[in-house]
């Protein structure tokens, strides 16, 4: 069975990585393994913004996956503040129907908004955004239903409004994608 690979980019809270390793197999039916790849994230640094170019990070993950001849979906997990030059920030990025995605916990933390640290809420948010990006890999676009994990979020409040689950319309597409990977040797 083809696994879903998690790649830590930079220093990532171990609890976040462990939690994703535990819950993503429940949602995808794919075993989840941590790939020990080293992503040279400093190359994606945007000097003038103090942020990291998420598309460049995606390219780096893809190159690592190609180099390691690793099949299956890859999800980069980071605490870096992601952006692309035209947008001020991103929670994550994925190529529609691609193989690689990246998600950031940076703007999902409560203290960034002046609120008390809440590790459970952080885990929920990272899980939702990870599922969201995996949904894009499955070919799903943003969903109009605000409770669906594929709903578009531009703030943590919107992330909190949605559930860590696909709606009835998105779920079959996601399941077919996951099944496709499960059936591969």
């Amino acid at each position: 069975m083809t696994p879903l690979r998690l790649i830590a980019i930079g220093s990532v809270n171990q609890g976040v990585m462990e939690y994703l390793t535990l819950v993503l197999p429940d949602s995808t039916g794919l075993p989840c393994v941590r790939a020990p790849w080293v992503i040279n994230y400093t190359e994606a640094y945007l000097n003038e913004r103090g942020q990291y170019h998420s598309t460049r990070l995606l390219d780096m993950i893809e190159r690592q996956a190609d180099g390691a001849r690793a099949s299956g979906p890859c999800l980069g997990v980071t605490e870096l503040d992601l952006a692309v030059p035209i947008l001020t920030f991103l929670f994550g990025e994925a190529r529609l129907q691609g193989r690689c995605a990246v998600v950031s916990a940076h703007r999902l933390r409560q203290p960034l908004y002046g609120l008390p640290c809440n590790s459970s809420l952080l885990l929920h948010r990272v899980e939702k955004e990870s599922l969201h990006e995996l949904g894009h890999l499955a070919g799903l676009r943003h969903c109009r239903l605000s409770s669906c994990v594929m709903a578009f979020s531009t703030s943590v409040e919107h992330v909190d409004l949605k559930e860590a689950a696909f709606c009835d319309r998105c779920l079959p597409v996601f399941e077919a994608w996951a099944r496709g990977w499960r059936n591969r040797p």
Binding site: T55, P85, L87, L96, R141
Partner: peptide, 16 residues
Amino acid sequence: EFSVRDSLQAWFRDSG
């Protein structure tokens, strides 16, 4: 600018 066109095209495409 290519990067602007590329990022926005992906952004809008994801939104349907």
